[in-house]
Amino acid sequence: MTFKKWLKTPKAYVAFAMIVYLLIASIGYKNALGIKNGLVAVIASVIVDIFMNMIKKRKWTIPDGAIITGLIISLILSTATSLAVIAGTAVIAILSKHIIVYKKKPIFNPAAFGLLLSVLIFQTGQSWWGAFGDLPAWTILFLLIGGYLLTNRINKFVQVFTFLGTSFLLLVLMAHFNIGDAMDAFRPPFINATLFFGFFMLTDPPTSPGKNGDQLIFGLLTAAIGTIIYALFGGLIYLFIGLCFGNLYSYLKKRSTSKVALSRSSMKKTQRSLS
């Protein structure tokens, strides 16, 4: 694939958006630590990705997926996180991409899965600094512009709208009935996290469904489970847990579809041999 062709792929859109966000956030926070963390996460991700591809004897491709995973991890983990923990999180994410698979495609979103395990293993703190969590509220516009461009490119509006609509509706109900901490969820940095997650993590093509009906259920399930977890326990990992359930739904759907397709083709074969 030529570079010009690659630039038109969804992965190029995401990679470009993540690099731009990394630069904007670094300028906004007047802190270059994030760029250093980004480089470490990308290098760790790419090394493990290439290594796993060599073990699996796969054809060489640009490790753009690994670069995106590394960038997302570095934009979510606090800039104060140690480099070893950042690299460790990236390694977990890429290993999950190669180990927990169905038909060579990852079941779970690598970045979300890596970050979730990172909290459990390393007790990492997520600041979502790359989603401009502590910058002025108008910087959310950058998330919306990048998010709409990507969602339009990969045709996942149904999924994103269902996710955001369900999340906000459930949070309104939480606020009305005084359950959990709905106030925080409507304000930075939580709203930044929700938008960043909805536009750039939820829409990952290999781990989310393509059909509109499936996108609707996927978005609904991710939002509902995530918000319920937030209402019950608070914290910052509710989005990742919700997405893991959404990914599981997507996997089960793919599996059931391929089983149906397999049984249909075998039926056709038997009919042909009988005739």
């Binding site: 339009n152 045709n155 509006f157 149904v158 709208f161 955001l164 609509g165 906000f168 509706l169 949070l171 309104v172 606020a175 009305h176 709905a182 106030m183 969820a185 409507f186 304000r187 709203i191 393509g210 059909k211 509109n212």
Partner: peptide, 28 residues
Amino acid sequence: MAKMNKKWVVLCSTAIAAVYATGYYSTE
């Protein structure tokens, strides 16, 4: 899979923004 109509995109975005605004101002 057909692309979502631009009108629907605008309509859904407005609806979501309205729900968000409700939540934001109710917790103000």
